[in-house]
Amino acid sequence: MTSFAAPHISCNEQVGADIARIYNIQRYSLNDGRGIRTIVFFKGCPHRCPWCANPESISPKRETVRRKSQCLSCSPCLRDVDACPSGAYAHIGRDITLDALIREVMKDDVFFRASDGGVTLSGGEVLMQAPFATRLLQRLKGWGLRTAIETAGDAPASRLLPLARQCDEVLFDLKIMDAEQSERCLGIHLPRVLENFQRLVNEGIRVIPRLPLIPGYTLSEANVRAVLRFLQPLALTELHLLPFHSYGESKYRMLGQTWAMAGVSPPDVAVVDALRRIAEQQGYQVITGG
């Protein structure tokens, strides 16, 4: 098995045009696509989902946070990331060039080849940095890697389509299926989302619909059936259900923010199973939590 030789950045390259802002690279993931995945999380999201488990992804700006559990309560505290002796103060978000990011993800090349895995671009919302993401996936496809994105699909088709065409699969979130409520609660323009979803399917791109099951928002039989009615003419076979969890609560505290879902419990297993059976009865292979 051959190893990857990282590309050299020439002094002639206009690397200023090839810079993205990311906040994490997660390795060895078994979700978010086939095989072993490396997930690149892009910073910035235009939406305001109350249940977001990654609040550090929302602002496109670099942020400085204090991890209370690591803080030594130094006196005087300079609140300086570089001067902090324990690493309690840290930046969220870093700028990275296209070639540098390729070098980072290709460190896992051996795992991609062994597992038929690849690279998934997530967020935030990757469509906010679509030109960079498109170039990145073009380069990775050139190395024979499998590629995917996670998206809510709420952007002009001119941004979505060139990026999606570089993907082996698009993990596409469908959330609140009432247009007025979707706009008011999430800031998502549902008609554009549904039109984009149909465009991807019509182009022959493999699209996997995903539905977060959120108490008070999407966790209802009516909303699930609305998703299934939309999908019915598209002849898809796979559906992912993503039950609500509270793993992100500590991040809100770290950012000094209040979480809108504080005190909300994950959905009962029986409730999720009932919704899963409704989809399975319509012929879908349903993956829960994938």
Rank of each mutant, 00 (worst) to 15 (best):
A235V: 02
I102F: 10
G187K: 08
A5L: 13
H245E: 02
T64W: 01
F244K: 06
D273I: 03
E150M: 12
R159N: 14
V119P: 07
D109A: 11
R48S: 11
T147W: 10
W51H: 03
W259T: 02
S246V: 11
R103S: 07
N202I: 00
S86A: 15
Q281L: 02
R37K: 07
V170N: 15
A222G: 02
T288P: 08
R139P: 06
T258N: 08
E221S: 09
A274F: 00
L30M: 12
D80Q: 05
T64H: 04
V15F: 10
L190G: 05
V224H: 03
L194G: 01
R94C: 00
T64A: 08
G290M: 13
A164M: 02
V81F: 06
S115C: 00
A148R: 00
E63N: 09
M106I: 01
F197P: 01
A155S: 10
M261A: 06
E104K: 07
R113G: 00
R34A: 13
A226M: 00
R276I: 13
I208C: 05
I278A: 15
V40P: 09
A83L: 14
T134F: 11
P131H: 07
A235S: 12
Q26S: 11
L121F: 02
S75E: 15
F41V: 04
R199L: 12
H8T: 12
A5Y: 08
G44R: 06
L200R: 11
F230Y: 04
G16N: 12
A152R: 14
G117L: 03
R48V: 04
D178F: 10
I214F: 06
E221A: 09
S73K: 10
C45V: 07
E13V: 11
N31V: 11
V110P: 00
P215R: 04
A6I: 05
Y89K: 00
V110F: 09
L239Q: 07
L236Q: 07
L78R: 12
V81Q: 10
Q282W: 06
A114Y: 04
G118D: 01
